[in-house]
Computed example of a mutant assay.
Amino acid sequence: MNAANERALVVGEALVDIVRRTDGSVSEHPGGSPANVALGLARLGRTAELLTWLGDDPHGDLVRAHLEQDGVHVLRGDRVAPATSTAAATLDTEGGATYDFELEWDLPATWDSSDGAPVVVHTGSIAAVLPPGGEAVARLLAEHRATSTVTYDPNLRPALMAAPAVTLPLVEALVAQADVVKVSDEDLAWLMPGVAPAEIAEDWVRRGPAVVVVTHGGEGAFACTASGDRLAIAAESVEVADTVGAGDSFMSGLIDGLWSAGLLGADRREALRSIDAATLEQVLVRCVRIAAITVSRPGANPPTSAELGEG
């Protein structure tokens, strides 16, 4: 594939975050983990398509306008959601968010994607496990493995998901399909309480991925690779406005960094599995910087390449 024509396909929920702050203020912002990843990729200069499930309503219009103004191509399907989903995020005094969702998730049967295979297909969060759309997402990933790198971020939402014992097999089935997995320590603590995150990452990387990254919020990130490398990356010190979208911006940076290293696409799968520690460290240090910028300002507002001094 010509590098100039390479694109990412992101599959998953887009919704409206209704943010309630400790000072009593309320605001509405487009969000959803996969949508945030697509936005982050577009701001980093990548061609990004988002396959999602929006209603033809004011909230859906808000989401489309927000994403498309930064260059995300929100794909149109043969059918739409009855209503655009919402997530009410209540922030604590340290900027951490808890969520209450009104959400339905499905996929259209057909959509207006560009010709040719994407170089990478990303999914995660609610879309990857919530029926009926979750099953369609798993099928779509399986169909694209022959042509595309597959990336996955569980980004779990316990309020919407079945108990850990039920959710864990779904997550691990997707881990086995993925080439790159990014997961937070909070997700792992809910899925497998009492098990060390690094131990889980080591297990997951043996299931098929080339790289598994565990984020630890303000403590940085840990990564392990199929070739046996282990890396710990420190977080940047920053004054936190809130943590909304931090992990999603990290995920965008991870995809973008591996893309720049020439490691995406099914034809680069073995090269990705052999990624050297120096290359991965360079990618992860930049991911940490991207996440730090995101948490330094309100909402899911990832940086552009220009803000990173790259363009």
Rank of each mutant, 00 (worst) to 15 (best):
T110Y: 07
W111H: 13
G116N: 13
A117H: 10
A117Y: 10
V120D: 01
V120P: 04
V120W: 03
V120Y: 03
V121E: 02
V121P: 03
H122R: 12
H122C: 10
T123Q: 07
G124Y: 01
S125H: 06
A127L: 12
V129I: 05
L130A: 09
P131S: 05
P131Y: 04
P132C: 00
P132T: 06
P132M: 00
G133Y: 02
G133T: 04
V137M: 03
A138G: 02
A138M: 02
R139P: 00
R139F: 00
R139A: 02
E143Y: 04
E143M: 06
E143R: 04
E143V: 07
R145A: 03
A146N: 11
A146F: 03
T149K: 09
T149Q: 06
V150E: 07
V150M: 13
V150F: 09
T151A: 05
T151R: 06
T151S: 08
Y152N: 11
D153M: 05
P154H: 02
L156T: 02
R157D: 15
P158D: 07
P158T: 10
L160K: 08
M161K: 05
P164V: 05
A165M: 12
A165R: 13
V166I: 15
V166C: 11
T167K: 06
P169R: 10
L170H: 07
L170Y: 03
L170V: 13
V171A: 00
E172C: 10
E172Q: 13
E172M: 11
L174C: 09
Q177G: 10
A178W: 00
D179Y: 03
D179W: 01
V181D: 03
V181A: 04
V183A: 02
E186W: 02
L188M: 04
L188D: 00
L188F: 00
A189T: 04
L191I: 09
L191N: 01
L191T: 04
M192S: 09
M192L: 12
V195C: 11
V195S: 12
A196S: 14
A196C: 14
A196E: 15
P197R: 07
A198K: 14
A198F: 15
E199N: 14
E202P: 15
E202H: 15
D203I: 14
W204Y: 07
W204E: 06
W204M: 13
V205A: 12
G208Y: 13
G208P: 10
G208C: 13
P209I: 05
